[in-house]
Simulated scan of single mutants.
Amino acid sequence: MSGITYERIPDGRPIADRRTAARRATLHIASENPRPQKSLAIIDGRVLSREHLSWGLLANGLGLHIVNFGSVNDIEDFDASEFSAILVCVDDSRFMDNSIVLEIEELVLRFPNAPVIVQADICGFQQILTVLEHGARGYLPGNAGISVCMEAISMALAGGVFVAAENLTDIQRILGTRRYQSKRGAMFTPREEDVIQVLRLGKANKSIAYTLNLAPNTVKVHVRNILKKLRVTNRSEAIYKINAMYDEVA
Rank of each mutant, 00 (worst) to 15 (best):
R23I: 06
V232I: 01
N60Q: 12
Q181W: 00
S93A: 05
L201F: 01
S54F: 12
R137A: 07
G145H: 08
L227M: 08
S71E: 10
A152P: 06
F78G: 00
W55K: 12
V163K: 09
S93H: 10
I171Y: 08
S147L: 07
Y246Q: 15
I4E: 07
V72M: 11
D74M: 01
L212T: 10
D194W: 05
R46P: 06
P36F: 12
V131D: 04
R137V: 02
P14Y: 09
R23K: 05
N113S: 12
R18A: 15
V232G: 00
I43Y: 08
R235H: 10
V131M: 04
P216S: 13
H52C: 00
I4Q: 06
P112R: 12
L64G: 01
L53Q: 00
G124S: 14
E166S: 15
R179C: 03
N167D: 10
V131W: 05
I100D: 11
V161A: 05
L102S: 09
E193T: 15
L40W: 03
E82I: 01
G138L: 05
A250V: 13
F78H: 02
L27M: 04
V90I: 14
A215H: 07
Q127P: 00
R178Y: 06
A164E: 14
S207D: 13
N205L: 09
R184A: 14
K203W: 02
D77T: 08
P216R: 06
Q37G: 02
R19T: 13
S84Q: 08
Y180A: 01
T5N: 08
I100V: 15
G145R: 09
D194A: 09
R179I: 03
G63Y: 07
S39P: 10
I43S: 11
P36Q: 13
S236Q: 04
A80H: 10
I29N: 03
G3M: 05
I42Y: 12
V195Y: 01
E7Y: 01
A85E: 02
R18I: 15
P216N: 11
I196T: 02
G56F: 05
A204L: 07
E82Y: 06
P115L: 11
G176C: 00
R35L: 04
K228E: 15
V118P: 06
E133S: 13
I66Y: 04
N33C: 07
V118M: 07
V148Q: 06
V72I: 14
K229N: 04
L168F: 11
E105Q: 10
K183G: 02
Q181M: 05
V101W: 11
C89S: 14
R231H: 00
T5R: 13
E151F: 01
V232A: 01
N225D: 12
G3D: 06
E76G: 06
V161G: 02
L53N: 00
H52M: 01
V195D: 01
L57F: 06
V131L: 03
A85R: 01
E103Q: 13
T20Q: 15
V101L: 11
K38M: 11
I196H: 02
R94L: 13
A164V: 15
A144L: 09
I86W: 05
D121I: 04
A186N: 15
E103T: 10
N167C: 14
G70K: 09
K183F: 12
M96K: 14
S236T: 07
Y180E: 02
L62I: 06
H222T: 02
D170M: 03
V221F: 07
R110G: 02
